Computed example of a mutant assay.
Amino acid sequence: MALMTPQFQARRSPLEGARPGRAARRAALPRPATVLTGAGLALLPWMVVLAKTLPQAAEVSHWSTAWIGLDAMLAAGLTGTGVLLRRCDPRVVPVAAATAALLLVDAWFDVTTSAGTGGQGMALLLAAGAELPLAALCAAVAARRTG
């Protein structure tokens, strides 16, 4: 009988004895947090490879298309955030969060790709005076609406 006391009983998994179904299949899949953490950590050695192998300068095809596309996404994000915010629409949260991220990316690439050129001053001015403040505003909208 001593082996039957609670402290000696084998611990059972919550899924043990459950009929196989959605819960069992879901438990077999990796959790999103694990996948995302693993993907982020996997990028660290890849960044070292890129730092050692990418050229300092490169000729880029469709440069204007890439920048116009990014600006089009920014225009849609800023306009969408404003319209949804004005309507008190809860869908403003993901739109504002995505727009904040796009603004940060735009500022980063404007400043880094202009380094050592005559356009670097303008890129820094736009980053400090427009892109980063707008990113902070969008992030604040997203954070305020989620809480």
Rank of each mutant, 00 (worst) to 15 (best):
M73F: 07
T37W: 10
A72Q: 11
A33R: 14
S61M: 06
A27K: 03
G40I: 03
P30M: 07
P55L: 05
L29Y: 05
G21W: 00
I68R: 05
G21K: 00
A39N: 11
A51F: 04
L70S: 04
R31N: 12
P45E: 13
S64E: 13
L43G: 06
L54E: 12
A33E: 15
A39D: 14
G21P: 03
A33Q: 15
A39P: 02
L74W: 02
L50S: 05
G21I: 00
V60L: 14
L50E: 11
P30G: 06
L41F: 05
S64H: 06
G77S: 03
T34W: 08
A24I: 00
A76D: 07
M73G: 10
A27G: 01
D71S: 10
R31H: 15
P45S: 13
L50Y: 02
P45V: 12
A42C: 09
A51S: 09
G38T: 06
I68V: 08
G77P: 02
Q56S: 11
A57P: 00
L74M: 06
A76I: 04
L74H: 03
S61D: 09
L41K: 05
A57F: 09
W67T: 01
L70I: 10
I68W: 00
L54D: 14
R31I: 05
K52W: 12
L74Q: 03
V49S: 11
W63Y: 13
T34H: 07
T37R: 12
A39Y: 08
A27N: 04
R25V: 03
L36E: 15
L70F: 02
L50H: 00
T34P: 02
A76P: 01
R26F: 01
T65F: 08
W46S: 11
M73H: 10
P32H: 11
G38D: 14
A57I: 08
G40F: 04
V35Y: 08
A72I: 05
L44W: 13
W63N: 03
P45A: 13
L29W: 12
W67V: 03
V35Q: 12
A58N: 08
W67M: 02
W63A: 05
A42L: 14
A57L: 13
G21V: 01
W46Y: 13
M73E: 12
T34F: 02
G40Y: 05
P55C: 06
L54N: 12
E59P: 00
L74F: 02
A28R: 07
V60C: 09
V60A: 07
R26W: 01
A28V: 00
E59I: 04
W46A: 14
R31E: 15
R31M: 12
G77N: 03
A76G: 03
P32W: 09
L50M: 07
A66K: 04
L50V: 05
W67A: 01
T65C: 01
L44K: 11
A23V: 00
R26I: 02
A39M: 14
P55V: 03
A42K: 10
L74D: 02
A57G: 06
A66N: 02
L29D: 15
T53Q: 10
D71C: 09
P32V: 10
R31Q: 15
W63C: 01
R26Q: 12
